[in-house]
Design a protein around this nucleic acid. Structure first.
Lengths: 243, 243
DNA sequence: GCAAAAGTGTTGTGTCTACACCCATGT
DNA sequence: ACATGGGTGTAGACACAACACTTTTGC
């Protein structure tokens, strides 16, 4: 078992730097976008990188990524944060071995955090030249989000506190990358107890139209809402068609 | 960005040892079991630990866990290996900080690998006293397996090359922890193109009974088979009830 | 009245569960 | 014939998609 290793001891289990990275995603202008900063120095000068940095001695990985993100955005605006995976290709970083634990972070729509000079949002579907393996991490974050939107209530992390079905539909469309029917969204999400009607309505725009009901997510805690019809325990209600 | 850090430089980003761990699961005697070894030395002498060890300088995490597992089982018998998550609680290991990347490994039923003296299989539902946070990792492996059994073809990793529906049912029951109907398994899995009939049959036992058809999994590569009915793109076939 | 936007009624389809029933074998 | 275990027929429940239609607003 590893433990009393002298720092700097020259051995094959050399000291590897460990960093944290985050693909912070938000729906902006109808597109799913990721927060990137432009590297000024070599290596990879001019390429865009995910926010992150080195793990400190006394912090957990999650504390670390929150600390580094604080330099780019207001961390209180993060509605969700989860670990994606740890990257370990020995040559993923020139100039020395760097292990990296990647996170997925989400920011609700409608927030526009102040950003440093070198930092900007980019559509995940049109990434600029990215540094190291950061492009792949951004795409992995998008895929994790897409999967969880379908079988959990993770939508709460993309949506503002209250919203109309129309607005929610456009968030889902941006995140999933395909059209979503407002009709069916309105039936499915309340049936699954994801959405609750607030009772309020939003007045129509200048062009008219019926006022839209305002909804909110029932909870801001991640829950699995689609229990996979097949292979469920026998004898349950809701035994019908797959969910 | 981390890179040109002198090994042994005294700083708050001290050198942390990185290890890999694996929850290797197999259905044995109708129960889901996990491979553990009994620690002879402190810390945690007498407690049971997951196999694993320190990450070497030039290897990836997956290479590392395969190398360490080779000391316990024949790695060729592993039908599946995937990363679970990286543990980073600063005090998860007494005597020094140890980051650990945990893997889930699976071994098909029917194989009984030779094991070292200190190593044994234990039912995941009745774990002995476990070392460090290894018990939680074993349970996390079980949960990952259960989820993926329901929406992927991961069953291939639990099953022998060919099997009857009955045998497969008992594997699923052990892994999922609840009864599974053979009738429905026989309809659902072929419909989802997970199973293929081999054409062969297995003779009945001494007590009689109709000979059972032998099946195999169509592929040994992980595939997502349940595409989550809701929020699928519009206009597709199979648009009906949820998958 | 007309256009615009929101929301509902309704029908059709596919999946899954459950249970009864039939089939093939050993004794 | 009977027991045992494998496999199928069939009916019911339910979720979902699609589309037509109604409701509520602004002009």
């Amino acid at each position: 078992m590893p433990m009393s290793r002298k720092p700097g001891a020259k051995s094959s289990t050399a000291t590897a730097v460990h960093e944290t990275l985050a693909a912070v995603l938000q729906v902006r202008d109808g597109e799913l976008q990721v927060l990137l900063w432009e590297r000024a120095r070599e290596p990879e000068a001019g390429a865009w990188a995910l926010p992150g940095g080195v793990l400190d001695a006394a912090e957990t990985l999650e504390e670390s990524i929150r600390r580094h993100l604080a330099a780019k955005v207001d961390v209180r605006e993060l509605s969700h944060l989860e670990q994606l995976r740890t990257l370990s290709e020995p040559d993923r970083h020139p100039g020395g071995r760097v292990l990296a634990t990647a996170y997925l972070g989400l920011v609700p729509a409608g927030i526009d955090p102040a950003l440093p000079e070198d930092t900007a949002w980019h559509p995940v579907d049109e990434l600029p030249r990215t540094a190291f393996d950061h492009g792949a991490v951004a795409l992995a974050g998008r895929e994790r989000l897409r999967a969880k939107l379908s079988y959990t209530n993770l939508g709460f992390a993309l949506a503002p506190p209250t919203f109309t079905i129309s607005e929610l539909r456009s968030l889902y469309r941006a995140a999933l990358g395909h059209a979503v029917s407002a009709t069916n969204l309105q039936r499915v999400l309340p049936r699954r107890r994801l959405l609750v009607e607030t009772g309020e309505r939003r007045g129509p725009g200048r062009t008219g139209g019926r006022p839209a009901a305002l909804f909110r997510f029932r909870t801001q805690d991640l829950e699995v809402t689609d229990q996979f019809a097949v292979l469920r325990p026998p004898g349950r209600a809701f035994a019908g068609g797959g969910g």
